[in-house]
């Protein structure tokens, strides 16, 4: 077998992968299961950082708790691994204390939408200048597969052995109605579009939300008998439909139904720091 020899000859030392510069090599290999899509999203994020052409010395990343909450530990930027659900609250503090920084919140659905739900909607309402990347794997994966606010109706989970009875959150609709300026949704399969979306959102002032639908091979797929991560990727390939500018009301995800992806909202609103500075300069003038 000739090709096999070629691999042996070309194998490279561990420090030459092009993304090694942005990863904390002492922490790898990461904890994510085989077939998990979070690693793919992190790769797309690293490629998007490269593409956005921003100053990495002035970029920081905040994560909460959970599988996706580990991202901040693996990315070699100034990173915060915060308490459960408070990623956006920490990020708002960072942004207000030093408005020069570019702040990215990289966390999961259970962290951002359930436990940090109030922080999410209020940061969107204030339009704090940050990028929120929300990995949606439909479940609380790290703690053992409990029902999350994004678990589709009738899906099984560890805490819903007869099927989930609660209607799930529609994250783009939540973000849009709360006032986010950039809302997109991609799956872990759409790596190129996700990379472009991250690069675009990084250069957009305001509260940007990118939802990434990701396979959870160990809990969500296994308990629902959906196969492994690769089978989930094939499902996304067959059942996702790109509709840019779609009304966010129509983006509900049911159990194994069609997933509509794309860029839904792209608008301009004054950011929190803009309105704050404008108001403050107005009052100072009034005092004089």
């Amino acid at each position: 077998m000739e090709p096999l020899k070629m691999i042996e000859k070309d194998i490279q030392p561990m420090d030459v992968h092009p993304m090694n510069d942005i990863l904390r090599m002492d922490r790898l290999p990461h904890i994510w299961c085989p077939g998990c899509g979070i690693g793919t999203a992190v790769t797309a994020f690293a490629a998007g950082l490269d593409k956005a052409n921003i100053d990495l010395k002035k970029t920081c990343i905040v994560s909460g708790i959970g599988c996706t909450g580990r991202v901040a530990g693996y990315i070699k930027l100034d990173s915060f691994h915060t308490t459960h659900g408070r990623g956006i609250a920490f990020a708002t503090g960072i942004k207000v204390a030093n408005p020069d920084l570019k702040v990215i919140v990289f966390s999961g659905d259970g962290d951002l939408i359930s436990i940090g739900g109030n922080h999410f909607i209020h940061a969107a309402r204030r339009n704090v200048n940050m990028l929120v990347i929300c990995i949606n794997n439909f479940i609380y994966a790290m703690t053992g597969g409990q029902v999350a606010p994004t678990t589709p109706l009738a899906a099984y989970a560890t805490t819903s052995p007869f099927g989930c009875v609660e209607p799930p959150f529609n994250i783009p609709y939540l973000a849009d109605s709360s006032g986010a300026v950039y809302v997109a949704r991609w799956t872990a399969l759409h790596v190129r579009r996700l990379t472009n979306s991250i690069a675009e959102a990084l250069n957009k002032p305001g509260f940007s939300v990118i939802e990434v639908i990701s396979p959870c091979a160990m809990y969500y797929s296994r308990i629902n008998r959906l196969g492994d991560g690769l089978d989930m990727m094939k499902f996304y390939h067959d059942n996702s439909e790109i509709r840019h500018g779609e009304d966010t009301k129509n983006l509900d995800i049911g159990f194994q139904t069609k997933i509509i992806v794309g860029k839904f909202v792209d608008r301009e609103r004054p950011t929190y720091m803009d309105s704050y500075n404008k108001w403050l300069s107005g009052t100072k003038k009034a005092e004089k």
């Binding site: 992968h17 092009p18 993304m19 090694n20 990863l23 790898l28 290999p29 990461h30 994510w32 998990c36 899509g37 979070i38 690693g39 793919t40 992190v42 790769t43 797309a44 490629a47 399969l189 790596v191 190129r192 990379t195």
Partner: peptide, 8 residues
């Protein structure tokens, strides 16, 4: 390179 979750 982009789809690999393990950077490998």
């Amino acid at each position: 390179e982009t789809i690999c979750p393990e950077f490998s």
